[in-house]
Simulated scan of single mutants.
Amino acid sequence: MSKPLDMELFLAGVLSGSYATRQRHLRQARTIQNEIAKRWQRETPWAWKRKHLVWFLEHYLAGRKEATRYFYLLTLRLLAQRLKKSWVFNI
């Protein structure tokens, strides 16, 4: 059995800002990871494709406030940066 991905360690190189901001990004990244794992059985960010993150934005966050969608968008950009992908997301 493999160990679950430590999202804090995964994002350590790209996280910056205050303690509260870093904690928010980590909490949101774990939520993104859990929802993608439930929907597509893709446990780690290395297995994700752009379509998985677009699904999260369009379906999981549907009906959420614009501010919530914006903060998740910032976390998605951090994930893409960490994966060294040039993905662009629109909200």
Rank of each mutant, 00 (worst) to 15 (best):
L79V: 14
R64D: 03
R24Y: 10
G17A: 08
E58V: 01
R82L: 03
S16Y: 12
S2F: 09
V14L: 07
R39H: 12
F56L: 05
S18W: 11
W87Q: 10
E66I: 03
N90P: 03
L74W: 03
L79I: 15
A12C: 03
V14G: 10
L79Q: 01
H52V: 05
S16M: 06
S2Q: 09
L74K: 08
T75Y: 02
F71W: 09
K51V: 14
V88K: 11
K85C: 10
L53R: 08
W48H: 03
W48Q: 01
R24E: 09
W40P: 00
Y70K: 08
W87A: 08
L79M: 14
A29L: 06
T21C: 03
R27S: 08
S16T: 15
G13D: 15
Q41R: 15
M1W: 00
L73Y: 00
E58C: 07
V88I: 10
Y70A: 12
W87R: 10
T75C: 10
K85G: 06
K84V: 09
D6E: 13
Q28K: 05
V14F: 12
F89H: 07
I36Y: 06
L79D: 02
A80Y: 04
I36S: 05
R39W: 09
F71I: 07
W46F: 07
L11P: 02
N90W: 11
Q81W: 01
A80H: 02
I91N: 03
H25A: 12
R77E: 12
L5R: 06
A67F: 02
R69W: 05
A37I: 00
Q41P: 00
R82I: 03
Y70G: 04
R50G: 01
M7W: 02
R22A: 12
W40G: 04
A12S: 14
W46D: 15
A62F: 01
R24V: 07
E35Q: 13
L76E: 07
S2R: 14
K85M: 14
A80F: 05
L57W: 05
Q28D: 12
N34K: 12
R24A: 15
E66L: 06
W46M: 06
Q81Y: 00
L73T: 02
A80S: 15
F71A: 10
K49N: 13
H59K: 10
A47R: 04
F56E: 09
